[in-house]
Design a protein around this nucleic acid. Sequence first.
DNA 1: GTGGTCTAGACCACT
DNA 2: GTGGTCTAGACCACG
Lengths: 132, 132, 132, 132
Amino acid sequence: MYLRIEKGSAVPISRQIADQVATLCASGSIKPGDRLPSVRELARELAVNQNTVLRVYERLCGEGLLEMRHGQGTFVTGRMSKARMAAHRTRLVDELRQIVRQATGLGLSPEELHELLGEAMNGEVTAARAAD
Amino acid sequence: MYLRIEKGSAVPISRQIADQVATLCASGSIKPGDRLPSVRELARELAVNQNTVLRVYERLCGEGLLEMRHGQGTFVTGRMSKARMAAHRTRLVDELRQIVRQATGLGLSPEELHELLGEAMNGEVTAARAAD
Amino acid sequence: MYLRIEKGSAVPISRQIADQVATLCASGSIKPGDRLPSVRELARELAVNQNTVLRVYERLCGEGLLEMRHGQGTFVTGRMSKARMAAHRTRLVDELRQIVRQATGLGLSPEELHELLGEAMNGEVTAARAAD
Amino acid sequence: MYLRIEKGSAVPISRQIADQVATLCASGSIKPGDRLPSVRELARELAVNQNTVLRVYERLCGEGLLEMRHGQGTFVTGRMSKARMAAHRTRLVDELRQIVRQATGLGLSPEELHELLGEAMNGEVTAARAAD
DNA sequence: GTGGTCTAGACCACT
DNA sequence: GTGGTCTAGACCACG
């Protein structure tokens, strides 16, 4: 499972992790029954406190997406509901809008933004490949 | 001065305000000597608590971007340093990357993303016109 | 860390706290790397609102004197600059002058003032000892 | 009437003015029946907003120390009560203590403080003479 | 436990 | 009208 968090971001770390795990579930990259990395494993990998990871897992359990089995690990149990996915998507669009607003304010031209977008997508692909 | 904040966002309100004011300074939309809306005024306009706006202004004063004059108002004093602008820009790119990563995970195609980007920019243009 | 604030004073509480912390940094009583009492702790100790202490710490962070580490505490990072110390000192002298002016106006003789000064310093010594 | 205010002080301007006027009354430098400078006159002299002076005069009227006669000016009506003088004096001592505490923290020796005190008093005398 | 954000509201000080 | 201080309390995020 490949996650990437930006520590200095305005978006809280726990939120970044939760969103990305949820996205992986939604996209089918991880499926019901799959085992997630252990709390301490993920914490180490992301260089984040274990409690932070733990709380993300707990939250996602509360939402029915994951299940923590004592002594065995944490597993995917469900897919994201359509409603949740739609909400997630709406939020992303809002955030995109915010960023674009500021980027244009800082003088980035539409072309540059589209380029960046392309890079970001390629970077994503590359990263995904690297994780294979 | 046109600001737009998303109240439900993971990004704290105060951060959104601060970033946008900083961006307006950087872009030259507001220039040294210009008077910002008063704390109360902006708070009312954004439907946010006065203290929230006050703390944003104070923080930006601490960074040398604004100056608060007792009984007179809050004024722009400096432009953003190049270093700060670069940092700001880097952060935006990082966040863009994050969003793109999640958006592609949620099944948005590159075409859809470029479309969204276009919309976001048009929205921006419209908003700017509305502020005229 | 020993602080003493006068609640009824014309000098705002937050200013008193900030000045005293800055002085402790300047005098070397607290050194870079040292951990300050937590916001809540100091607030309780001084019988002051947490937000008041928080804002003081934030301000001093903005000046580069302190650093707040999420979940860990607040730490001293720098010494006061010479310029800041000089300014601080000048201000103290000015305020001393103001007080003396009024004291003499109220009929305190020079001798009485020198006595008071002695007492104040002894009180200080005692307090310092009490803090050991 | 000679007043001296420090604009950068932590003590509010209005408080400085009020205290000094009160002190002048207490010391007998200005006596019942004496006319104070007009609001605008004093405001100009101190380079302060007229409203600030006005509110000081009003406050001192409320305390029975002054009386504002429409179209004629502001006059001293009473002396300060003993209780008020005692309170004033206590406060001064407290503030002295605060300043001494910080001054010693900044490395001023007792000798230096006594010297400063001497200077402050001489400065005061000189100033008073200059005002003659 | 730590810091951080936000609200609501009172009261003060300066123009 | 403006900014500035302080309080009380809720809730979030990080270690």
